[in-house]
């Protein structure tokens, strides 16, 4: 009887495949699956003639065949009627749409990507460097002697004497200039590491973005203009930009860049935010250019570094940086 079922199944599947319209399929349904005279139903009806030992397995096989054929018939019916509007069956359009999981790109990655798109349009390319680096690349070549208090500013994680986890993305400046001649127009996003404990604004590993421009005739005016252009494209045309003097060993003059944004409230009112510090920047110190063998009397440049996680905090109203690194699905799932 199992063999008979198998044969019936093959035969029916073959017939379904050859059927051209719904009418033909309906005739096939009656022939194979019909309650009264259907051939598969017939097998089920004859179960009684089997021994009690055989009965369950054959019964199960018959039911499976019936189910398989019903599905196949339905599939085929769908195929032959696909071209025509469904009018016979009323569909419940109040049902929620059929769902799939929605994935998401990390909010910090999104910020990096948005920043990158703007700089890409300003002629920048991305450069990469190692996360484990030497004191030379992380400090000395960047005009930060280890016996200067500036080297204290970033408490660094070491692997061995002289070998460390980069505390900023600035070593990529040196590595890139060593490898390529001017003009340089790069951005270097990447992870950096500090000897910090976790709190609302610190994690030991976090993302940073570096930017570097070196060419003839690059001035403080270009520096200001390009970063202001970036800020207006990123935060909106009403954004004000302020440059404040600061100190970084590898830039001179150095600046901190603040923005004041215009945000639109829910009632449509526009409101100015406070000044918010968004990046450290400055003209590349001639000593840095000398260290990579560029002629610092001929070439000038500017550089910046910013923390995309901080920008993401501002963008999404996140108060605690740790949320970005806990990777709770309920948090990440909001950024689809």
């Amino acid at each position: 009887m199992i063999d008979e079922l198998r044969r019936l199944r093959e035969e029916a599947l073959d017939a379904f495949a050859k059927a051209r319209d719904a009418g033909e399929l309906e005739r096939l349904r009656v022939r194979y699956l019909g309650r009264k005279d259907g051939l598969v139903s017939g097998v089920l009806r004859r179960l009684g003639s089997l021994s009690p030992q055989e009965r369950p397995s054959v019964g199960a096989a018959a039911n499976r065949a019936k189910k398989l054929l019903a599905e196949a018939l339905q599939d085929r019916l769908g195929e032959v009627t696909a071209a025509r509007p469904e009018t016979e069956r009323a569909l419940d359009l109040t049902l929620p749409p059929r769902r799939k999981w929605r994935g998401s790109i990390h909010p910090v990655s999104q910020v990096i990507d948005d920043i990158w798109r703007i700089f890409e349009s300003l002629g920048f390319a991305r450069a990469r460097g190692p996360e484990v680096d030497t004191e030379w690349y992380n400090f000395v070549a960047l005009n930060t002697p280890l016996d200067h208090p500036a080297a204290d500013e970033q408490d660094t994680l070491y692997l061995a004497p002289g070998l460390l986890l980069r505390s900023h993305t600035s070593p990529v400046q040196i590595r890139t200039m060593e490898r390529y001649p001017p003009p340089i127009r790069i951005m270097a996003p990447g992870m950096v590491y500090r000897r910090d404990t976790y709190d609302a604004t610190h994690t030991p590993a976090f993302a940073q973005i570096e930017g570097l421009v070196v060419d003839e005739g690059v001035t403080f005016v270009d520096f200001k203009a390009t970063l202001a252009e970036f800020a207006r494209r990123f935060w909106g045309p009403g954004t004000q930009v302020r440059f404040r003097p600061s100190f970084f060993p590898f830039t001179e003059p150095s600046a901190e860049v603040d923005v004041k944004r215009v945000i639109v409230r829910e009632d449509g009112r526009e409101e100015e935010t406070d000044w918010i510090e968004i990046m450290g920047a400055g003209m590349v110190d001639p000593a840095v250019l000398d260290n990579v063998g560029y002629d610092s009397e001929r070439y000038t440049g500017w550089a910046f570094g910013m923390g995309p996680a901080r920008v993401a905090m501002l963008r999404h109203g996140v108060r605690d940086l740790r949320l970005f690194y806990e990777n709770d699905m309920r948090f990440l799932g909001q950024f689809t």
């Binding site: 890409e120 300003l122 002629g123 920048f124 390319a125 991305r126 450069a127 990469r128 890139t176 490898r179 390529y180 001649p181 001017p182 003009p183 340089i184 127009r185 790069i186 421009v213 060419d215 005016v221 270009d222 200001k224 203009a225 390009t226 202001a228 252009e229």
Partner: peptide
């Protein structure tokens, strides 16, 4: 002043 000026393309290809 803050005035954008023309720039030359860099020598570094996008990684």
């Amino acid at each position: 002043p803050s005035a954008l000026s023309a720039f030359r393309p860099g020598t570094v290809p996008d990684d």
